[in-house]
Structures are given as C-alpha cells and as structure tokens.
C-alpha cells in the first residue's frame, strides 16, 4: 500500500464519518433531537421512579389482592421487551380507537418498564430493613404510616439508589427505540439526515450526542456505587 493510498483512505474515513460540511448542515437538526431525548428521558425517569416508589409503598401495606396485581404488573413489565410494548401501543391501540402520539407511546412504555424495576428495587430495600426497625418505631408510638414514612422508606431509598441509577440509565437509553415509531429524537433525526445526505456523519453525531447525554450519568453511578460501598464498611 502506498502512502498516497493510505492518505486517501484516511481522507475517505474522515469525509464519511467526520464531515464538517454535513455536520454544520444537519447539526442544529440533530441537536434539537437531543432536546427531545433529554425531555423525554426526564419524563420517563420522574414518572417511572415515582410510580415505582408509590407501588412499593402500597405493597408495604400488605393488602393481598392489591399486592397480587402489583406483582403481576412488575413481573410482566420486567419480562417484556420494551420494543414489543411500544409496538403494541403504537400499532394496536389506534385500531380500538385510542390514538396516541408516538412520543407519548414511548414515554408510557418506558415509564411503565422503569416503574416495574423501581418497584422491585424499593421493595427489596423495604424488606431488607431489619425487623427491629419496625419494632423500635412502633414501640415509640409511631403509627404504621409514620413508621413507613419516617423510618422504613428513607432507609429503603438509600439502599436502592445505586441499583436504581443503573436501571434508570439502561432503560432511558431505550429512548432510541422511538426512532422505530417516528419519534424525532436523536437517532430518528440522525437516521433521516443519513439517508438525505448519503453520508455517515449524522450517525456519528447522533452517537456522540447520546454518549454526551449519558456519560455523566454513568460516571455518577460509578461514584455512587463506590461511596455506597465505602459507606457500608
């Protein structure tokens, strides 16, 4: 291979994946996709964790029929692939007269999945709080609800934060699935720019944007895990 060939290969690589012209042309478009991803991500995280927390607290009351439904919900949404849920909501529901915008479908699907995982994590936290904590709190005259609210849940949440962070990240990354039902998030916009420009640079930008959005969270989760471990010993 001659030096000139190597050079032209390198040029071709840069032209294809790191093309400045194409980057400026579609940059703003894809950046707006990042806005959609971040907002949808926040919505998924807030509603998912909130609902999971609520379900876990409800389960702690110990009302058998309610618990049965919570467990069924949790197990099903932990087992189903998110894309399957998304497709059912997006393609199936219009046929029974419920038309949901694709962004809402994405939010509801991932929110439900995160709620299921969050419920399981909080519930594991609740059950791992020693029995003595309940006894001690009740013996000082706190009611059941007060014990739950002031003694048990704070400890359960503390235990649950590291696994919950990891889970929230991996579920929120599924926002890229929105591109399959036409949500205008990063990957969707990168994909259409890709086909319009016949160049891979939009894909590179999309990938980098995703990493930029998620890497702080991944690093935060690593830090949390480490502190948590130190706190234990």
């Amino acid at each position: 291979m001659t030096a000139a060939d190597a050079m032209s290969n390198w040029d071709r690589f840069v032209f294809t994946f790191f093309n400045a012209d194409i980057a400026t042309k579609y940059g703003w478009e894809i950046l707006q996709g990042a806005g959609v991803t971040i907002l949808a991500g926040l919505a998924v995280v807030i509603t998912g964790i909130g609902a999971g927390f609520g379900l876990a607290a409800l389960r702690a009351i110990g009302w058998k029929p309610v618990n049965f439904f919570i467990i069924v919900f949790v197990d099903i949404f932990r087992s189903l692939p998110p894309l399957a849920i998304i497709l059912v909501l997006f393609f199936g529901f219009p046929n029974i007269g419920i038309v949901l915008p694709s962004l809402i479908v994405l939010w509801m699907s991932l929110g439900a999945v995160l709620a299921a995982f969050a419920e399981e994590i909080f519930w594991a936290g609740i059950t791992s709080v020693p029995k003595g904590q309940w006894l001690a709190a009740r013996s000082t005259g706190l009611t059941f609800a007060q014990t739950l609210r002031y003694v048990i849940l704070p400890q359960a949440v503390r235990l649950g934060i590291p696994p919950l962070t990891n889970r929230a990240i991996s579920i929120t990354k599924n926002l890229a699935l929105g591109s399959a039902i036409g949500v205008n998030e990063i990957l969707g916009r990168a994909n259409s720019a890709l086909s319009m420009s016949a160049n891979a640079t939009p894909l590179t930008m999309g990938a980098l944007l995703y990493v930029l959005v998620f890497i702080p969270l991944v690093i935060a989760s690593r830090t949390l895990e480490r502190n948590y471990r130190w706190g234990e010993h």
Binding site: L175, N191, T204, Y210, F214, L217
Partner: peptide, 15 residues
Amino acid sequence: RAFPPLVLLVFVYAG
C-alpha cells in the same frame, strides 16, 4: 454503557 445498543447497532450496520 452510555451508548444505546440500538445506536451501536445502527452505527455498525448502516455506518
């Protein structure tokens, strides 16, 4: 871990 698997897949397949 920060890279959505679908983006990775599309990158490998379409890029």
